[in-house]
């Protein structure tokens, strides 16, 4: 590629290099046929199907959806945003785990150090906390959206129940995370919350004991809730999310139209 003056321009050289990379065996082995990342991508119905079928993430979707279902006013993206926030919370949460020890008093000092000693530590912690609040909201609003569209009706009855379980797990995830800063807000909010559980008829004392790992909240509770928060509950909620998404497809895709 040469210009009139006989020199190769930077732009044409870059374009040539780009073509060379996108035609290389490594590149074409990563991006399967039909991927828009490939040099030979063209907009055809076949390739539009391949884009969805040949990508592990997009594959959550069917190749085609009902036209009314992609209107923003129908779903308001609430279910998708809940899932996205879960992923965002997982990523920021893993970051925070590098700097946090679930013991007393280190937990509190680790959070203080996060704000002063760790690059972007405070920002990531803020995102984790506000994101968690927003996720509780979006999950709840998603449920109301589904109700108002009557989307729980046959054949989607069971997926509604899975959704209720997911709402409960979201609340539990948020609540277990609430204790971890080990400050006055965390300690007493959790005290109030777990006191309510102790009023369960017949076996209230046992529920309370299992929940906080003792007669009253101690450093042992911190470790217990930490494990629940970072391993146990994410593990359970992931299983239920998989069932939830799978059933959306199996029960006939997006509900409606009204």
């Amino acid at each position: 590629m040469a210009d009139g003056n006989g020199k190769t321009s930077v732009k044409s050289a870059a374009a040539g290099l780009g073509d060379h990379i996108r035609n290389s065996e490594v590149w074409t082995s990563i991006f399967r046929p039909g991927s828009p990342m490939r040099a030979d991508y063209s907009d055809s119905p076949r390739n539009r199907a391949y884009v969805v079928m040949n990508n592990v993430l997009y594959h959550l979707h069917p190749v085609k959806v009902k036209r009314h279902g992609i209107k923003l006013s129908y779903t308001l993206c609430l279910g998708g945003l809940s899932f996205f926030l879960f992923i965002l919370l997982t990523v920021t949460g893993i970051f925070l785990m590098f700097y946090y020890r679930p013991t007393s008093p280190q937990a509190y000092f680790d959070l203080q150090a996060l704000a002063t000693d760790v690059a972007f530590g405070q920002l990531v912690r803020n995102m984790h906390r506000w994101g968690a609040h927003i996720m509780v909201l979006t999950v709840f609003l998603h449920m109301t959206r589904v109700f108002y569209h009557g989307s729980y009706k046959p054949p989607r009855e069971f997926n509604w129940i899975v959704g209720i379980i997911l709402l409960l797990l979201t609340l539990l995830l948020s609540f277990t995370g609430y204790l971890l800063p080990w400050d006055q807000l965390a300690l007493w909010a959790v005290t109030v919350g777990t006191n309510m559980a102790a009023y369960t008829p017949v076996f209230g004392a046992q529920v309370s004991f299992a929940l906080i790992g003792g007669i009253q909240i101690t450093a042992d509770t911190l470790l217990r809730w930490y494990v629940l928060h970072v391993l146990f509950l994410p593990f359970i909620i992931t299983i239920f999310m998989a069932v939830h998404f799978w059933r959306v497809r199996k029960d006939g895709g997006i509900s409606g139209p009204l």
Binding site: R125, N126, W130, H133, D183, Q184, A189, V192, G193
Partner: peptide
């Protein structure tokens, strides 16, 4: 622009008034 709250170190002998559960409860 908004920092997540971090109050004083957890103190079992000093209950704040009022003590409230997380907002969704």
């Amino acid at each position: 622009f908004m920092d997540a709250p971090l109050l004083e170190f957890a103190n079992f002998n000093e209950q704040p008034n009022p003590s409230k559960a997380p907002w969704y409860f």
